[in-house]
Amino acid sequence: MPDIPGKGLVKGLGVTLRTMLQPAVTTQYPREKETPATRARGVIALHQENCTVCMLCARSCPDWCIYIEGHREKAPPRRAGGRPRQVNELDRFDIDYALCMYCGICVDVCPFDALFWSPEFEYSEERIADLLHDKDRLSEWMETVPEAPPLEVGAQAAKK
């Protein structure tokens, strides 16, 4: 190319100059934090009262990282004079986040709305065994579960 020598260099330095005058896009993570999207799959929260120990989530988990144990209990009848009811009580509900693939199938299949996604992500541990969250820890995440965002124009609300 019959060009002025050093034209490419000047062009490149021009880019440098332009970029230098722009604000930085980097977020200095531990000091400033970005808010994740509302739908972000950060951690699974458990609403203990809704769980009926039906085991659907544990069975549909692709890597079997949900551990559930429960027992049957007699509950007082709904109406006076009725028979006592049988209810399932939850003894253990553990999710091993060291195994979890964050696919969200358990949240989808839960027929009683006991599992929810929360966008929280800061729960790293020094020991891998501590990533096993028990039911109390999972219930604590319930506070961070956001409302589902409104849908875009033209969307049809899902039937329940």
Partner: peptide
């Protein structure tokens, strides 16, 4: 991420459709 919930692994496609609709403003 705003629509599927996952930046790298969306897992958003379902047989017969999708998991969810677009959020408003997307």
């Amino acid at each position: 991420e705003a629509v599927t919930g996952g930046r790298f692994h969306p897992n958003f496609d379902r047989i017969g459709g999708l998991k969810d609709d677009l959020p408003r403003g997307w």
